[in-house]
């Protein structure tokens, strides 16, 4: 009911992705497959170069027997889902209070200068996206940023440079 009819769920996603989603589905009660929606969106987003298309969200809805709108609600509510293309490396810079008073402005300025883009933008070569984020819970290491799954703390322009140089 209310869902996208799909005859064969095995036609959605690759075997690997289905396997990963199924692992999450298994953590929740049998009639609460939808609990895996956040994980499914994350998995699908990672496999799609870091962002979600409407089609992918529809696929997740079909796979988890959800109404598509319920998936859109989730994907647009949580800040870690991207609904537009992002660079290979999404650089999330915390500018919240502890980071701000430890000069996160300098981190932002340095990255903007170095990459030639502003916050919210992606470099033309598609390698980097700069994103301003809220407190990431690492205030002891302010100023800090996250690239991919990794936290980088106590940032200075020099440290930032060496981090960027170490990225593919």
């Amino acid at each position: 009911m209310n869902t996208i009819e799909v005859n064969n769920k095995a036609e959605i996603f690759s075997t690997e992705i289905r396997g990963e989603i199924d692992q999450w589905v298994a953590k929740y009660p049998a009639d609460w497959k939808q609990s895996a929606v956040m994980a499914a969106l994350r998995i699908v987003q990672d496999a799609n170069g870091g962002w979600l298309t409407t089609e992918l969200m529809n696929d997740v809805a079909a796979y988890l027997d959800m109404a598509p709108i319920a998936v859109y609600e989730v994907a647009t509510f949580y800040s870690m889902y991207e609904l537009k293309p992002v660079g290979k490396h999404k650089i999330c810079i915390c500018t919240n209070v502890s980071c701000m008073i430890n000069n996160s402005d300098r981190v932002v300025d340095h990255l903007e200068d170095r990459l030639g883009i502003k916050l919210g933008q992606t470099t033309e070569d598609g390698r980097f996206t700069l994103k301003e984020v809220e407190c990431l819970g690492a205030c002891g290491g302010a100023p800090m940023m996250q690239i991919g799954k990794q936290y980088y703390e106590n940032l200075t322009p020099e440290i930032i440079d060496s981090i960027l140089e170490g990225l593919e």
């Binding site: 209310n2 109404a67 709108i69 319920a70 859109y72 647009t76």
Partner: peptide
């Protein structure tokens, strides 16, 4: 039928079909 929803959050929350 869940056709309408509230997407986005806070002040940016929009009621509609997305």
């Amino acid at each position: 039928i869940r056709e309408m929803g509230a997407t986005g959050r806070g002040e940016h929350m929009v009621i509609g079909t997305y």
